[in-house]
Amino acid sequence: MKRFLSRTLPLLMVLIFGVLGAIQYFVPHKVSQVYYRTILTWSIGVSSMAVIMAAISFLRYHYKKIMSSEGDTLYSSIALVAFLAMLGFGAFGTDKGSLFYQFYQNIFVPINSTMFSLLAFYMASASYRAFRAKTFEAALLLTAAIIVILGTTPVGSSIFLDKVTMWIMSIPNLAQKRGILIGVGLGATATSLKIILGIEKNWLGG
């Protein structure tokens, strides 16, 4: 029974839902549309129920950190209190004007935007890393990057770099994207087939 529930049934399910899902794309009939909408709603619904496991995981992770003596007590306490506060506020509504919204807007948003803006600095350090690599590939990457950066500035457009930038973006960059996309498409299709046929079953523990 355990083997049936842990392997046979799941493999049967990926086969059935996989084949039906793939066929659905070619069938415009109502039956097929209803199937698609139903399964999509169910998928979102089922995944959303994993959120309870996620919440338990979060609580357990920080609770254990607080209880251990590794010096993370303060930080995990802050995380836990903030987490529980948001859950508590959320229970009383999430509309504009609610405490949930206030905390989101005034705590989450400023930290979030600042985190995002850190990327400007990280781009600089990443460029330096590429510069130090001193390989032919890195040189190509950096040259293209510098041309495009200059091309988007007024200085660049005065020496026609804006046109070069446009050309790089719409010709070699497009070619590269297309080539990679085709490869990804072939690889993803093959992976999908292997899952449906039960050849790829790492998700079942190999």
Partner: peptide, 23 residues
């Protein structure tokens, strides 16, 4: 296979599996 992020992985990671290589 996130094409827009591949450049950043390439410059900051020791090795990067590009697109189809991930699959």
């Amino acid at each position: 296979d996130a094409i827009t992020q591949l450049p950043f992985f390439i410059v900051t990671c020791d090795y990067t599996l590009i697109g189809e290589e991930l699959y």
